[in-house]
Amino acid sequence: MIRELNILRKHGRQYIKDLDKVVLPAVFRGRPEINKDIPGQEADKILALCPNRAIRREDGLSIDLGKCVFCMECAFACPSGIRFTNDYRMAVNRPEQLIIKAGDSRLLRPDPQVIRPEIPRIFRRSLKLRQVSAGGDNSAEMELSAAGNVNFDMGRFGIEFVASPRHSDGVVVTGPISSHMVQALKITWEAIPSPKILVLAGTDAISGGIFAESQAIDRSFLTENKPDLYIPGNPPHPLTFIHGLLDLMGRK
């Protein structure tokens, strides 16, 4: 007992008291900002470079955070044109919001107009989630687990992962949705009583990521079901996940 208390004393207080005040290191790859006037030649180079075709040219360059694998190669190739800030709040609820245009430095938040009114009404103080990894590489899964650990402690907001879909209010999908997991994902989704929410966590889940062109994935689940929240990242940081959910729950 005394040894336990000693360990606890050394352990100190590990939880982050105010999640709003966390500043991640400058090197963290968060919400990008794109310069309006990237010279044509530079722009061509960046367009050709992007491994996942997340960058497009339309009235200046734009980055689709649903496709971006956060490799930063564009920023290394053209530091004056593209910069990844350390702003980890990137979760949104409209796919169009994922596209960051040149000159855009707006903060990314879910659009309150699009949040279904029953979500904050019912889940504001308690949101129990089931996680389904459908081809996920285990980094997103570990970050979701970390969101509930002693540091980030999302349990304080009533958010928790539960063991059964019967106990849950929604599904968090990770991975590009391998075709071998489609059936299990559908069964899990259907086992959850309505109203329920669907969250896509990570670039793989939002667009298929680097696996988008593989024949071994099957995205049909998403044509039938509309996500309530998109959480970019490779993998998403626990803070990106928690803040996204809090916005969706109307806690902000």
């Binding site: 694998v69 190669e73 997991m181 990521g209 696996f211």
Partner: peptide, 25 residues
């Protein structure tokens, strides 16, 4: 259940950066 066709993606006509990103995933 997790099969994503990694080896095929690493092999077929992809560029060096795409392969490096695929490898870390």
């Amino acid at each position: 259940y997790q099969h994503r066709g990694v080896e095929k993606l690493m092999g077929e006509g992809r560029n060096g950066l795409q392969r490096a990103v695929c490898a870390e995933n």
